[in-house]
């Protein structure tokens, strides 16, 4: 029997294990994908998942019912991932880069990336770049919000995003060259 979102919520609020399991089954795949983007290894991603879902079940009363329930869960998972990163990485220890050369990039590969390619690309980014890129491009946060979340300046957030994109462009270009056997336009 499939429970509706409302029934799931009610069950979780009452602490029913069956409802909690159903909620986990419904969102775990998507949230695991989110975790993998932020932390580098599967083990760490699972650790974040455990902490995040425990928090979701314990704090479910804080979800007011307004806005997307999935969005709320996603936000909890992201917060947990950032907490995990903060324990192991200092976001504010780097040098701001004021001048970043911007070049026109022409990539001739098809607009498709496999999951493995995405992970490979993201893994090659330093933690700071990857986190800002994730938060800005894929989660839709603004630079001011990112600065507050990571304890860095707005300009740092901006420069890290520029550098992350530049690095990704370079990597995608290389991938294009490999795929097309060196015929891709650089």
């Amino acid at each position: 029997m499939i429970l509706s979102e409302q029934e799931l919520l009610e069950g979780c609020r009452k602490g029913e294990r069956r409802a909690q399991k159903a909620l986990y089954d419904k969102f775990s795949s998507k949230m695991f994908g989110v975790c993998k983007r932020y932390v580098k290894t599967i083990e760490n991603a699972e650790e974040v998942m455990v902490e995040a879902f425990c928090k979701i079940f314990q704090k479910i009363d804080l979800y007011s019912g307004q806005g997307s329930f999935e969005g709320w869960i996603r936000r909890v998972v992201i917060n947990e991932a950032l907490m995990f990163l903060r324990k192991n990485y200092r976001f504010n220890e780097h040098i701001d880069i004021t001048e970043v050369p911007v070049q026109a990039v022409h990539v001739t590969i098809e607009d498709e990336l496999s999951a493995a390619e995405i992970m490979l690309l993201l893994e090659q980014l330093p933690t700071g770049y990857r986190t800002v890129f994730n938060l800005y491009v894929l989660e839709g946060f603004k630079h001011k919000e990112i600065a507050e979340l990571l304890g860095i300046s707005i300009n740092t957030s901006k420069s890290q995003l520029i550098l992350a994109k530049k690095r990704l462009r370079d990597l995608v270009e290389q991938a294009a060259v490999i795929r097309t056997g060196g015929n891709a336009e650089a």
Partner: peptide, 10 residues
Amino acid sequence: DNEHKLDESP
């Protein structure tokens, strides 16, 4: 466009 491909059962 490709982010959803990372969805995977833990």
